[in-house]
Design a protein around this nucleic acid. Sequence first.
RNA 1: UCCCCAGUAGCUCAGUUGGUUAGAGCGGUGGACUGUUAAUCCAUGUGUCGUUGGUUCGAAUCCAACCUGGGGAGCCA
Length: 476
Amino acid sequence: MFNYVSWRAFMTFAVVKDILAGKFAVGDTLVVRGWVRTRRDSKAGISFINVHDGSCFDAVQVVAPNTLPNYEAEIQKLTTGCSVAVTGSVVASAGQGQDFELQVSHLEVLGWVEDPDTYPMAPKRHSMEYLREFAHLRPRTNVAGAVTRVRHCLAQAVHRFFHERGFYWISTPIITTSDAEGAGELFRVSTLDLMNLPKNQDGSVNFKEDFFGKEAFLTVSGQLNVETYACALSNVYTFGPTFRAENSNTSRHLAEFWMIEPEVAFADLDDVAKLAEDMLKYVFKAVLEERADDMSFFAERIHKDAITRLQQVVENDFVHMDYTDAVEILKNCDKTFEYPVEWGTDLQSEHERYLAEEHVGAPIILKNYPRDIKAFYMRQNSDGKTVAAMDVLTPGIGEIIGGSAREERLDLLDRRLAEMNLPKEEYSWYRDLRRYGTVPHAGFGLGFERLVAYVTGMQNIRDVIPFPRSPNNADF
RNA sequence: UCCCCAGUAGCUCAGUUGGUUAGAGCGGUGGACUGUUAAUCCAUGUGUCGUUGGUUCGAAUCCAACCUGGGGAGCCA
């Protein structure tokens, strides 16, 4: 009787993906390790066990004959979730559904499921809400596994896309002492004793005693920081976690999410709109090519158009539209909206949905929004009332990208800061970029989880990140 | 934070003009059958009916508050 742990140095280990892809010759003996998905016994004297290891969507079928010494004592007791190391030879499958399978010569149980009745991941359909309560076990499900592989594929494709175009990845800080980024509520970072706060004479908290000697927060955006590198290395991007302490309870918001923010020197709004379009097409194509197995699953079980709509996006030019024109379209369409459309107000979700889902039926780029509803740093257009801002709206998810040309003219930037009552001193280093060798530049922010949700067709953003954080929920 | 909906078996849900012993499918378990493949067939167990309080002779069912989840809105990525 040999033992998996002591013999592992002499074995050929294989992942399920390679076995199913035919990378081994029939007759090769190898070891596959993974978790049992299902077991079916045949009175012909064999058991069929599906073993998955995460390397691809499908599990490998291992065929265990009843001549194995532990057949009755162990193999027939295997249940969903058990971990196993299976030694066997590759054979052409006699059954349908797979080309190759493993004829077992030795099967070692590494870990039992102590009570199959209580194992939460039963081999049956579960709701996403239920699976969310088991964030530590849901990775073993088909759907979480598929999401994980697609998410990884997208992340790799994003890095590859930028690398191929000469962009540098900049790690912008996660902790910031600027509370004036203007993009939402911030999480405080502090080492002060909450029960015994140091106070100033006027009763306010004395943050000079805090770790950084001043108030500190988790970042809500790397943009302001990454602009400094764009104004030196020309083409840069961030890809990292972002935090918003907003009390948002929706299927498309997280308190902790990942964001990709390219920033391009010497670029205008149309340049980055093109960049956004090229990037989305590039990563969609990568997923279609590299994760066909997982995408088939999404098309079959999650969203029937999951594959076809990506193909359509890849093959067609994005529709570009000015905010002003969009307002006219919304005013003149025969659809009745709950909220009226007026030039100068922000578009409501229902308006964005109509444009992306009904008017175009594909992602749409909206550009040149009214100045008064947008952030201080956005470049003012010569019409005196709009800024060079854009949103990329997708059917189902809504906004997945928000971007703009940045105001590079110091006098115009200062005027906006004053109009919006933002303290100039807080932006001294940001203003320095405009004082010393300023250049036109532009960029955008892409919500990574929203991208994953759009690609997979998953309806809730909490199911496309391993451990979602949202108001009142930070378990695991 | 606001509006709407839901909470009954391990899971998904049915069950309300208030009435005795609470129902199905799936999963689990036992068996039959079978190169099976989310197999099929037979058998089988399981319930503080979200919590607290109220109305009532009597509450899963009606009322109130709270908790949790979902959908929508706002904020945005």
